[in-house]
Design a protein around this nucleic acid. Structure first.
Lengths: 152, 152
DNA sequence: TATTGTTATACTCTATAACTATA
DNA sequence: TATAGTTATAGAGTATAACAATA
């Protein structure tokens, strides 16, 4: 009758201690990512929104805010920065005049692909330089698990 | 003569794309961690410094800044907040009058252990509720790999 | 009345620049 | 001169509160 999907449960203390280690490490990595600027010279927050728009297509401010778990007011600031730099375009919603659809321009989308293939970011370079193939696999295997934690 | 420690190298494009996925996911998790407040009601940044002090013992502002890869001025702000709340104490360096040693009070250290064992934080709860034992193991296996990426 | 978007304001984290005190 | 610490200031990211326009 365990709440876990697995069999033998880890003790609460063990898991909590491990979670602290994980939390601290994740925080340090993300801080490093923030200072190691991307080729596009955009911030992490902007990069994540662009990725969302590329992956899921055009969306409204409210929808993006819900998807990224931030307030619409906060998402608006990020989008305004991207819009000011011409990376994101806005168009009216076809039927609902309240809504505004945000989208990534075709040129930028292509540019993003090029940049990724050049692996100009700190994370890709570090993974290539410091981890072996099996270790890279182990690290990437954590991605879907982290995503599961974010699910409602 | 691969730069990698492993054998068959991943293509640059593959790795860069995977790195983008990882980066975006890590950012989302850390953002979630920031809003899901800890039992101590301290910020992530403060929590990481406390963890460092508990793990490595008393240290100076400059040493903590180096260890956490931030500027001394930034570390000072974090430490000032912890000091104001009585979580961190300062004592003069025995020989060098310029330096100030920061340490966690004994009471707080004990309190931290209790809090961890109660697994009151979002990450531990999510891992327990959403991942099985093997998945937890897979996720925790990523910790040392992420740490390696942070090494100089 | 509920939803979308917006403006105003504030707090945290981090940075750079410039300063003081000690080594 | 170099190092430790500090003060001042600024920008990014996020939050809450209050408001306007539309559904």
């Amino acid at each position: 009758m365990a709440k876990n999907a697995g069999d033998d449960a880890r003790s609460a203390g063990e898991l909590a201690e491990a979670a602290t280690e994980l939390r601290v490490t994740l925080y340090r990595i993300v801080r490093q990512l923030r200072t190691a600027q991307s080729a596009l010279e955009i911030t992490s927050s902007q990069s994540v929104v662009l990725d969302r728009l590329v992956t899921d297509g055009p969306a409204t401010v409210a929808a993006l805010a819900r998807a990224e778990n931030v307030r619409p007011q906060s998402m608006r600031v990020t989008l305004a920065a991207l819009e000011e730099r011409g990376m994101v375009e806005r168009s009216p919603h076809p039927t609902d005049q309240r809504q505004v659809l945000l989208s990534v321009s075709a040129e930028l989308e292509q540019q993003l692909a090029v940049i990724r293939s050049l692996k100009e970011d700190w994370l890709a370079r570090s993974m290539a330089a410091k981890l072996g193939r099996a270790e890279q696999d182990a690290l990437l295997a954590a991605i879907p698990l982290l995503r599961r934690l974010l699910e409602p």
